[in-house]
């Protein structure tokens, strides 16, 4: 940016505690990234569910896996009220 640089940006917040993203819970996020990308799980016809071949219903079910994981990680890493 061409805006004139401010004189030495102050860092008043450096000492305050923050919710950093170093929580071990974050590793869980890899599950819904890796699992939906393994065709061996879903690339088949049987069993069918409501007429859907496994290829379709299982991949739609991974959506729930993704939602559950991101929700869990969010809840477990959320800042506690009053901490800051």
């Amino acid at each position: 940016m061409a805006a004139p640089e401010p004189e030495a940006p102050e860092a008043p917040t450096a000492t305050r505690s923050r919710a950093k993203d170093h929580s071990p819970w974050n590793w869980l996020l890899f599950v819904p990234i890796v699992v939906p990308l393994i065709p061996a799980f879903f690339n088949g016809d049987s069993p069918r569910l409501f007429g859907f071949p496994r290829f379709y219903w299982l991949q739609l079910a991974w959506i729930l896996l993704g939602v559950a994981t991101t929700t869990l990680v969010y809840q477990m890493t959320k800042k506690k009220r009053g901490e800051r």
């Binding site: 993203d21 974050n26 996020l29 890899f30 599950v31 819904p32 990234i33 939906p36 990308l37 290829f55 379709y56 991949q59 739609l60 991974w62 959506i63 896996l65 993704g66 994981t69 991101t70 990680v73």
Partner: peptide, 17 residues
Amino acid sequence: GFFAVPYTIVIYPLVFL
């Protein structure tokens, strides 16, 4: 053509942080 489904599943945990 169904790649759109895993595509839009993995994106959210991928960009969460």
